[in-house]
Amino acid sequence: MPDQGHPTREDQIRSGSGFSRRDFLKGSGAAVAATTLAQSVSETEAAQQAGTKVAPAKASAVKLDINGKAVTVTVEPRVTLLDVLRDDLSLTGAKEVCDTTNCGACTVLLDGKAVYACSVLAHAAVGKKVMTAEGLAGQGVDAVAQCFVKHDATQCGYCTPGFVVATRAFVAAKPNATVEDIGKGLGGNICRCGTYAGVIAAALECSKKGGK
């Protein structure tokens, strides 16, 4: 409801303990967590008999494939991939800006396709290959990023990693793209500095070269 604040960041930060820090501070956390746990276990058992494992509404381990490396994080199902990348893995290339699938700053590749990491739950990324801005180039500098530098496609730089990752997926899908194609493909990334002319020039060149 509008008159109640949304849960703060602190509410959502999780540990392996199964209850939030705020609940713990209120002194009621343990009791709440115990009740939730009891309920979850019976539900989990029922569903396991049906064949699918139900992750309880508390932190549990998930194995992810990030930039080609297998990592295990212990997070609640409500935690997004973006928060895992930034808070648990210190991969801060994907930015949290709008957090509502509008701005594109958090773009990562999921099985090679560009997605908003703010709209992917970490538990839903299991079994998929995640590639962040950090992972794009391997050892060197990614060709798309180089193209952004060449065409001065960045000002404050906050939107740039998201733009670069989105452009990487875009040029793979659309070789020899037109300016109109670029507007349609990259319209989900916003630059408040207004570097669009540079971004379009960079995307045009990358697309012509097939991202190489």
């Binding site: 989990t44 699918t52 494992k53 139900v54 199902p77 409500r78 839903a124 299991v126």
Partner: peptide, 23 residues
């Protein structure tokens, strides 16, 4: 975001069974 359980079924039938829980 409130807490919730999470499941990732492989079949439509399983999905429907999982969706029927918790009333």
């Amino acid at each position: 975001m409130s807490s919730f359980e999470f499941a990732s079924p492989r079949t439509e039938a399983e999905a429907v069974e999982l969706l029927a829980a918790h009333d």
